[in-house]
C-alpha cells in the first residue's frame, strides 16, 4: 500500500501519485529543516566573505579545487547509485538493491578518504579552525557536512545489514526512500558548498 510499483504507474495515475509520495512526510520535514540550517551557513559564509574579502581570497587560493571537484563527482555518482537502489527497492529486486547500496557506501567511503587527504594537507600546512575567518568557516561548514556524510553512511550500513532477503526489502521500501532522500540532500548541499567555498572568486 505504501510502496510505489514503477511498472504499474501511468501518467493518468495522478491520484495515486499524490497518495504514494516517496518517503514519509516526517523525512521531508527533517530534510527541509536541515537544509534551512545549511542555508544559514551559506548566508554566513557570503556575509563574512563580504566583510573580509582579502582573507577569503587568500584562503580560497590555498584550497585544492581538484580534491573538492573530485568529491563533487564522487557524491553525484553516489547519489545516482542511491536513486537506483530506491528504484530497485520499489520492484523488490534484492540483488540490484544490495549492489547499489554497496556502491553508494563505497562512494561515501571514497568521499571520506578524499576529505581526510584534504584536511591533513591543511593541517600539515599549519591551517586549522582558529587560523582566521576563512578557515573557521571552511572547517566548520565542511566538517558539519562531513558529519552528515558519516550519519548517512551509518544509515546506509543499517539498510545493508537489515535487508538481506526480498521479504525484508518489502518491509524496508519506505526506509530506503527516506535514507535515499537524506543521501541526496547530503549531495545537494555539497554541490552548493563546493561552488561557494572552492570556486566562486
Amino acid at each position: 500500500m505504501n510502496t510505489i510499483n514503477v511498472d504499474k504507474m501511468t501518467a493518468s495515475d495522478s491520484e495515486s501519485l499524490i497518495e504514494h509520495h516517496p518517503a514519509e512526510i516526517g523525512v521531508w520535514l527533517f530534510i527541509f529543516a536541515d537544509m534551512c540550517i545549511f542555508a544559514m551557513y551559506f548566508g554566513v559564509f557570503v556575509w563574512e566573505k563580504n566583510l573580509n574579502p582579502a582573507i577569503f581570497a587568500e584562503g580560497q587560493a590555498t584550497l585544492s579545487a581538484q580534491l573538492g571537484g573530485l568529491n563533487t563527482v564522487i557524491l553525484l555518482i553516489s547519489s545516482y547509485f542511491a536513486a537506483k537502489a530506491v528504484h530497485s527497492a520499489r520492484v523488490f529486486n534484492i540483488d540490484a538493491y544490495r549492489r547499489f547500496i554497496k556502491l553508494t557506501i563505497f562512494c561515501g567511503l571514497a568521499f571520506l578518504c578524499v576529505k581526510f587527504v584534504e584536511y591533513s594537507d591543511k593541517f600539515s600546512a599549519g591551517f586549522d579552525i582558529a587560523t582566521n575567518a576563512f578557515y573557521r568557516n571552511y572547517f566548520s561548514f565542511t566538517g558539519f557536512h562531513l558529519l552528515h556524510v558519516i550519519l548517512g553512511l551509518s544509515f546506509l550500513a543499517w539498510l545493508l545489514f537489515s535487508t538481506k532477503t526480498a521479504e525484508q526489502l518489502k518491509e524496508n521500501v519506505k526506509a530506503s526512500e527516506g535514507v535515499g532522500l537524506y543521501w541526496h540532500m547530503v549531495d545537494l548541499l555539497w554541490v552548493v558548498l563546493f561552488s561557494l567555498i572552492y570556486l566562486v572568486p
Binding site: 501519485l17 516517496p22 518517503a23 541526496h184 549531495d187 545537494l188 554541490v191
Partner: peptide
C-alpha cells in the same frame, strides 16, 4: 540543486507542498 531535487529526490512525485 534543482536537478537533484526534481530527479533524484523526486520532489515532482512528492506532496505538492514539498
Amino acid at each position: 540543486v534543482r536537478l537533484i531535487a526534481i530527479h533524484f529526490m523526486e520532489t515532482a512525485m512528492a506532496h505538492r507542498l514539498v
